[in-house]
């Protein structure tokens, strides 16, 4: 029985870590701009697709991975420069629609540039499962955990220990005040999109050996990432990670002990309940209305 439970947990952790990585991207952009970027899933897709197709065409893996991260960052910068910045002072809903438009555009571009087929990457360190007390785990899942961990530490360091990171946080707290002390809001916005696109690409690359990727892969990852970020409390990186893991584990346990047909529904019910009692997510800041 315990072995089964452990296997459900591993399954949930694998999915959960993937959702968490997707959720982190939402958190970063929200932090510096209060914008929910519905094209975040597409950054993940671009990272996965470009690395997979580059490797397939004979480019060595490390080079392919770096190129994929650059391509995705370029997409993030382009999105910010050409679509978000011109509309900076618009309503939140307006910007949401812009990012939805951007996600449709990127999917359309991806099916033209690449194709509609599924692509995969070889697992980073082989495909022999690791046995732990009767349950098994793929080495690639460990890669996903490790990368999520490294990313979280790196982000913490960036936001708390570097000048620029602190400036980015400052902007999120009070845009005007940040401007007054000389923080360039535009630069911060640009950096946050570049950073979350980079993060998306990293996520896309490490998960592709597990989930495969195609031009539409970003939709589901975006949706789960959004759920993870909201459940954890918007703008809180650690919250997004916890949120993602909760969603993943809830799905796995639900399919193990309740009903696999309703596992997604069960995950959403949990999110709804959390929100009923904690309207700002698990770790969100208490919102105060400005009158």
């Amino acid at each position: 029985m315990f072995a089964a439970f452990l296997q459900y947990l591993f399954s949930g952790l694998t999915s959960g870590a993937i959702y968490a990585l997707a959720g982190l991207g939402f958190a970063i952009i929200y932090n510096s701009s209060q914008v929910i970027n519905f094209a975040q899933g597409e950054f993940i897709m671009i990272g996965g697709m470009s690395s997979a197709t580059l490797v397939a065409s004979g480019v060595p893996m490390p080079l392919a991975i770096s190129l994929a991260m650059l391509i995705s960052m370029a997409a993030g910068i382009a999105l910010e420069k050409f679509a978000i910045e011109p509309a900076r002072n618009s309503d939140v809903v307006t910007i949401i629609i812009i990012t939805i438009g951007a996600s449709i555009f990127m999917r359309g571009a991806a099916q033209l540039i690449w194709d509609k087929e599924f692509h995969s990457l070889p697992a980073f360190s082989g495909e022999s499962p690791i046995a732990v007390m009767g349950a098994t785990l793929m080495p690639q899942s460990l890669w996903v955990f490790a990368v999520s961990g490294v990313v979280i530490v790196a982000l913490w360091w960036f936001f708390n220990r570097t000048m620029f990171g602190k400036a980015m946080l400052g902007t999120s707290h009070n845009r005007l005040a940040a401007q007054l002390v000389g923080v360039g809001v535009k630069k911060v916005l640009l950096a946050s999109f570049a950073l979350s696109a980079l993060l998306g690409a990293v996520g896309g690359i490490v998960v592709t050996p597990i989930t495969f990727t195609n031009y539409e892969a970003g939709i589901m990852l975006g949706l789960k990432g959004f759920s993870a970020a909201v459940l954890g409390g918007l703008g809180n990186g650690g919250g997004a990670i916890v949120g993602g893991l909760i969603v993943g584990i809830a799905e796995a346990l639900a399919s193990g002990y309740l009903s696999s047909a309703y596992k997604d529904a069960i995950a959403f019910v949990i999110i709804l309940f959390v929100l009923f009692f904690m309207p700002n997510g698990l770790f969100g800041k208490r919102g105060t209305d400005r009158v």
Binding site: I100, G101, F105, M106, G108
Partner: peptide
């Protein structure tokens, strides 16, 4: 898809 996204 590209045109629709661009128009939006």
């Amino acid at each position: 898809a590209m045109i629709l996204g661009a128009i939006m």
